[in-house]
């Protein structure tokens, strides 16, 4: 089953200087029991995508087309505030970059974890037992004692693990993780990735994992989605994309990662040019201004072209781009 199915989603923001199309015809699917990574640079629309799925779009934003199917039925675009609230935290859980966003500094961790279970009929003792169980799963040492402690008594890495424990407490079917490791040191980052992998197996939920860190995506995710300037330019299995990227942007992005270089380079690869102005989107392909394959065909917006299995790319020249890496 597909847990989250975003079809043809477009989102506009009305600003003082004109209407800005933040997402254009975005298609993506998060299958059951899979970890799907979303990569893209600043301004690619990752945050808008998450906010739209969570129904937390800013006041000046509006969905202009498309639908978001959750567990194959409810269309999140048209769900009312109450329906959305019932899903958030229960069926769709989130973890953000800053764990303090999820933690209330003046309440003990135990109290907060109990509060999340407000819908459950369990007794207070049973709820605490579940909290302890969950804290143990995220490898917080001595969870019985730490339940009474306050967020500031935990280190940064521990706070993020508690935030994850809280997100997974209600056994959601979808976990949205927005750059959860970005603020952490590499050693902690690795630990969180491994933790997420384990927990996802145990709980059997799907994960939508947003990151700008290609290494993290490669290590954690089954499938991945590459976004550029509000469009999904390529999606497929992580292995397909890392080994056989077909969209010129994906290729360039992968080439830029200094982690790929095993020695010092006099000149590091970059992507010349800048993001297009989203208030005045180019008519055709979104990447045409920065692409070396651009020709007349690119003046028209390319469809999503399958290039083998579930691997899809939004590029007229997907046939030419195969083979050697950029």
């Amino acid at each position: 089953m597909t847990i989250l199915d975003v079809k043809d989603l477009s989102v506009d923001f009305v600003t003082e200087t004109g209407t800005l199309q933040a997402l254009r015809k975005v298609n993506l699917a998060v299958p059951a029991n899979r970890i799907v990574g979303v990569v893209g640079e600043s301004g690619c629309g990752k945050s808008t995508l998450i906010n739209t799925v969570l129904g937390l779009l800013a006041e000046n934003g509006a969905v202009t087309s498309g639908e978001i199917l959750f567990e194959g039925q409810s269309d999140l675009v048209h769900l009312d505030a109450n329906g959305m609230r019932a899903l958030r935290g229960q069926k769709i859980a989130t973890v953000f970059q800053d764990p303090m966003g999820a933690l209330n500094p003046v309440l003990s961790v135990g109290r907060q974890m109990r509060d999340i279970q407000y819908r459950s009929a369990l007794s207070r003792k049973e709820k605490d037992a579940r909290s302890i169980e969950m804290l143990r799963k995220v490898r917080i040492p001595d969870p019985e004692r730490r339940l009474a402690q306050f967020p500031h008594e935990f280190s940064g890495g521990m706070k993020q693990r508690i935030a994850i424990a809280m997100a997974l407490l209600m056994q959601p079917s979808l976990l949205i993780a927005d750059e959860p490791t970005t603020a952490l040191d590499a050693t902690l980052e690795v630990a969180i990735i491994e933790l997420l992998k384990d927990l996802q197996q145990q709980i059997g939920c799907s994960v939508l994992f947003i990151s700008h860190h290609l290494g993290v995506i490669a290590e954690l995710c089954d499938d991945m989605i590459v976004m550029y300037a509000g469009e999904v330019v390529e999606h497929g299995s992580t292995r397909d994309i890392f080994h056989n990227a077909r969209h010129p942007y994906t290729k360039k992005l992968l080439a830029c990662d200094p982690a790929r270089l095993s020695r010092r380079e006099p000149q590091l690869p970059t992507i010349p040019g800048t993001l297009p102005d989203l208030r005045d989107r180019p008519k055709g392909c979104i990447f045409q201004a920065r692409c070396e394959f651009t020709d007349e065909a690119c003046a028209e917006m390319p469809p999503d072209i399958p290039v083998g299995g579930a691997h899809v790319t939004r590029c007229w020249h997907a046939g030419k781009t195969t083979g050697a890496r950029a």
């Binding site: 980052e189 490669a218 890392f242």
Partner: peptide, 25 residues
């Protein structure tokens, strides 16, 4: 060595032999 091994690399097929650092600083 632990810091160097903790660097996630952009290769899904890479087998990581990490030096796991226990506990917090």
């Amino acid at each position: 060595a632990a810091l160097l091994s903790a660097n996630p690399e952009p290769d899904p097929d890479k087998v990581h032999n990490r030096i796991a650092l226990p506990a917090d600083v």
